[in-house]
Nucleic acid binder design. Structure first.
Length: 972
DNA sequence: GAGTTTGAAACT
DNA sequence: CAGTTTCAAACTC
């Protein structure tokens, strides 16, 4: 079918001459953008003016709107043709679906529109379309999960349709009321459009979303097209299109680079007549604007979210008319790296998926308010590095390009937990909470949203807080969801919270860098929801104790139980998470309420003054940048998560939730000062399981006793005076595994992990993306163990430095999720270094190389990720964690950006401070750089070769560079 | 459910 | 910066 049109999304390998133009569909979002753009691309083919069509359509960076250039007869024709072709497919629908599923928080609105406006479209058609889409996905690199999401979305649509015709068959489906509201909104938009149309034929205001497809326009398109089969255009439609007057809901996706945008802007004045682009955009597009403004980030996709589109029922009227837009920029994360799913096919990053689906759900939820959202695709992890462009939001001015997402972070304290998806974007804070099963606790959710919004406002500077929480309602989850879950992470609950660090600083910094940190909070992990946690109960009515017990699980949101801190200290999870306490909290004398906003703000500031990172995510999920998402990297996993500061466990062995690392479901890192670490997610040694082997040999009693240890031999764990473990490698530097090409990749994974737990390690917690989730691994213990052995050994060898010995200052600038090679090298103690030196030294490479190695390993080691977590490791009761996905450390290498460090971290943490914060008590030896050098020099050829291999095999991470499949863009 | 343990956060 | 205290969650019984 016409679906072929979408094919381009994948990028034409051959066509990618102009970076700006061709954006690889590295990430779902990007794919989506491409998707949208595709139709236009077709134009290219036909018209011969490739750039024009596609660019116009896609480009539209912010100001976009105006981009639509003069109507070229030819183009018009082309457009018409394209349109005609698309028509059958109902591109808009497709877009909507895709958007909903793939784009975070973007599409819900569009979806609604669909329901309201496109009721006429047969669900089946949609399904068909989706099917086509799914087919297309392969090219697009959409993971299966995503596909599922799409499918689900489709179903949802279908249900929606049904709903219109036949009221709510499903609770989760869009209620008629919503539809009506949507219609109403559309009407309003239309009115606005008309008015504006009369008033402003000219350039589109910043608010207006580029693609002039107003809802009306879409509607007209859909409705009117029928009457104009030939071209599907009507005068009316033309007008709509031609006038920038994009309705608030207008969404534009522009895969193209800024340049194009500028170009379009220049032409903006011409608008009118017809610019095909806008018109052709699907409705969904109307709602969402995706702009790729980043020159440096070819793959990055910026999504603009019109505030007015936020479906808050309450705010419908006002918001619609507002020119403010919220822009989400999704960095096209290379799915591979992030890909969680075991599915080889899925190149899509879990994050993306989660984001998408969540967004979808979220959007729906938002629009519907209390309505439950059904189609939340489950647990897909959102690894998508999101970028929210907050800058432009408040004022509606042209959106400023948001800084590339550094990553996703989990705040251990983050409240958001399971279930709800919160997208708080800046001022308006699009705080959407979509719950799969909204049947209950809506009020609570609402309250939470309010709180968050309030909080966001409170944060003021805070550019944006996006919290996406995917809650896995196994109970309620439909098969699709479950399916997604399975594919995705198998996390019981995964939540992604995207939060700006609560404060302005981060914001500021982000503004500077134009980036925002993304925090992912798998709250689910941390605290699985109990069944029914409907927490509409008034907390006050419940005894503190009861509440306390209940609180944690509520609707997935963490509830505090503070008694003395007044919820104004970091002890308070709510406060720490940057949210207000809710009724569900059992806290006493709580000041963390909207009523005390000022107090809260002040307190926060105070705390931040003390520790700039206080509100930063505790766990950083580092996303490797998939440079090339050619589909080659399907198996690579993306990221790793580490507790920034590291834990300091003494007695819990990092096997209990006392341990923040464990709680967050991440392995301990070098930054941890824990003693006797047995974190099943990964040991701080970096050696992870590898080191365990040595335990037997090691003198450390605790370690020796560790049953888990001993898998691997050849490495000695040595404990440092401070309790940290040192590992001495007895292994020969070169192990067969290393040499073996096939093994190399896997082996790398661990290494990466070890390399810089905090820094760049890009290994995601197994649960997140590892195909071999704990469960899986458990099933495959034998093989897994064996593999681990091999891997561990290899890793060891490859490890730049003795993992255990190497300590990275979590807070060091490099740390922030970026692998700071600087930090990597050092051996804590001479002895350790010496012991490790033999091995490590051989391994060591230039910082950059190491980084790449990590990245590569991350990517390559889907299995490796798993590897970290012991196969046997039970699924930890994940709690909420704040996971931040940060850009690849090494991205810097590829990246033009000078500093990849997340803004939050960057700004707030000076090295000194960082250090201070990170480890007051920990004994860390700053890594002697010399070691690094020595290591390099001494590195054995074999090792070198191994690394080389790694580097070669692993696509460089374009940290900041857009994730594009397009090789060109990376310049690798 | 009460009490204990634990480790982060806060304080000195 | 290190040590101590406070705090609330996690855990145990």
């Amino acid at each position: 079918m016409s679906m072929i049109q979408f094919g381009p999304c994948t990028q034409k390998e051959g066509d990618n001459d102009s970076p700006s133009q061709d954006q690889p569909c590295s990430s779902p979002s990007s794919c989506v953008a491409a998707f949208l753009a595709d139709p236009l691309e077709n134009c290219d083919n036909s018209s011969g003016s490739p750039d024009l069509c596609s660019k116009q359509a896609a480009i539209m960076p912010q100001p976009i709107q105006a981009d639509i250039t003069s109507a070229d007869e030819k183009q018009l024709k082309c457009i018409k043709e394209d349109f005609h072709q698309l028509r059958p497919i109902s591109p808009s629908i497709l877009v909507n679906e895709i958007t909903a599923d793939s784009v975070d928080c973007l599409t819900s609105h569009a979806l609604l529109n669909l329901h309201s406006e496109q009721a006429s479209d047969p669900p089946q058609a949609l399904r068909n379309d989706f099917t086509s889409i799914e087919e297309t996905n392969a090219e697009i690199h959409v993971s299966d999960v995503k596909k599922c999401a799409i499918t689900k979305a489709t179903k949802s649509l279908g249900s929606s349709y049904l709903a219109e015709e036949d009221p709510p068959r499903e609770e989760s489906s869009f209620p008629v009321a919503q539809i009506e509201s949507k219609v109403k909104m559309a009407d309003e938009a239309k009115d606005i459009y008309e008015r504006s149309h009369d008033e402003q034929p000219g350039p589109v205001s910043t608010d207006a979303i580029a693609v002039a497809c107003s809802q009306n326009g879409l509607k007209s398109m859909d409705q009117n097209m029928a009457s104009y089969p030939s071209c599907g255009l009507k005068d009316e439609d033309r007008d709509v299109v031609g006038h920038n007057k994009a309705s608030p809901s207008t969404l534009v996706m522009c895969p193209h680079g800024t340049q194009d945008a500028n170009k379009n802007r220049a032409e903006a004045g011409k608008w009118p007549e017809f610019d095909s682009t806008p018109q052709w955009l699907p409705e969904s597009l109307q709602d969402i604007q995706v702009v790729d403004e980043h020159l440096d980030d070819p793959g990055a996709i910026c999504i603009v979210y019109a505030e007015n589109q936020i479906p808050y029922d309450q705010e419908e009227g006002t918001q619609h008319q507002r020119g403010m837009r919220k822009r989400l920029q999704f960095e096209a994360v290379e799915n591979h790296q992030m890909s969680i799913v075991s599915n080889s096919e899925s190149s899509a990053t879990p994050l993306d998926m989660g984001t998408i689906s969540d967004s979808h759900a979220e959007a729906v939820a938002t629009s519907s308010n209390n309505q439950s959202v059904q189609s939340v695709p489950g647990n897909a992890l959102c690894r998508l590095p999101l970028r929210i462009d907050v800058s432009g939001q408040k004022k509606g001015s042209s959106p400023v390009t948001a800084p590339k997402p550094f990553g996703i972070g989990l705040h251990l304290n983050s409240i958001g937990s399971s279930g709800p998806i919160n997208c708080n974007v800046n001022k308006h804070d699009i705080n959407l909470q979509g719950q799969k099963s909204l049947s209950g606790g809506n009020s609570q959710v609402l309250q939470d949203l309010k709180n968050q919004v309030a909080l966001t406002n409170l944060k003021g500077n805070n550019p944006a807080t996006l919290t996406v929480t995917l809650e896995n309602n196994s109970a309620n989850g439909n098969s699709d969801e479950k399916h997604l879950e399975n594919q995705a992470l198998k996390l019981p609950n995964s939540s992604v919270s995207y939060q700006s660090p609560v404060d302005a600083k981060p914001l500021q910094s982000s503004l500077q860098s134009k980036r925002i940190d993304h925090y992912v909070t798998p709250s689910n992990i941390k605290r699985p929801l109990p069944d029914g946690a409907s927490k509409t109960l008034d907390s006050t009515q419940i005894s503190p104790r009861k509440r306390r017990k209940k609180a944690p699980e509520n609707d997935g949101h963490r509830r505090c139980n503070c008694k003395r801190s007044k919820c104004l200290k970091l002890y308070c999870d709510c406060f720490a998470a940057g949210t207000f306490c809710t009724e569900a909290c059992a806290c006493q004398e709580c000041f963390n309420r909207s009523e005390h906003e000022d107090t809260v703000r002040e307190t926060r500031q105070q705390i931040e003054s003390r520790n700039p990172l206080a509100f930063a995510p505790k766990v950083v999920l580092q996303v490797t940048n998939p440079q090339k998402d050619n589909g080659e990297n399907k198996d690579t996993t993306p990221a790793s998560a580490r507790h920034k500061r590291g834990c300091n466990c003494k007695k819990s062995l990092c096997l209990k939730k006392y341990c923040e690392c464990y709680q967050a479901g991440v392995g301990c890192s070098f930054g941890c000062r824990c003693e006797g670490c047995k974190n099943t997610f990964g040991r701080k040694d970096g050696c992870g399981e590898i080191i365990e082997i040595e335990h037997k040999k090691s003198k450390e009693g605790s370690w020796e006793s560790d049953p888990s240890c001993g898998k691997l031999e050849g490495i000695d764990l040595k404990r440092e005076p401070d309790g940290t473990k040192q590992c001495q490698s007895r292994l020969s530097p070169l192990t067969p595994s290393i040499q073996g090409p096939s093994d190399v990749p896997k082996s790398h994974c661990p290494a990466s992990y070890r390399a810089s737990p905090e820094s760049s390690a890009s290994v995601l917690p197994y649960y997140e993306g590892c195909p071999s989730s704990p469960v899986d691994s458990m099933s495959n213990n034998a093989s897994e163990q064996e593999r681990e052995k091999t891997l561990s050994i290899v890793l060891y060898d490859q490890e730049p430095g003795c993992p255990s010995t190497v300590k990275v200052d979590p807070f060091s600038p490099g740390w922030d999720g970026f692998p700071d090679i600087h930090n990597l090298s050092p051996l804590p103690n001479p002895e350790a270094s010496a012991s490790c030196a033999s091995v490590a030294s051989k391994i060591r490479k230039p910082k950059i190389l190491q980084t790449k190695l990590f990245q590569g390993s991350a990517r390559l080691s889907v299995g490796s990720l798993c590897w970290r977590s012991s196969p046997v490791t039970p699924l930890p009761p994940f709690g909420e964690g704040k996971l931040v996905v940060e850009p690849d450390s090494d991205s810097g290498v590829h990246n033009n950006r000078e500093d990849d460090t997340p803004e939050v971290l960057k700004d707030n943490c000076t090295p000194i401070k960082a250090v201070k914060t990170s480890s007051p008590k920990q004994k860390r030896v700053s890594p002697p750089h010399r070691h690094l050098h020595e290591g390099r020099s001494s590195s054995s050829p074999g090792l070198r070769s191994a690394r080389k291999f790694i580097l070669q095999s692993v696509p460089s991470f374009p940290p900041l560079t857009p994730y594009s499949n397009n090789p060109r863009g990376h310049g690798t």
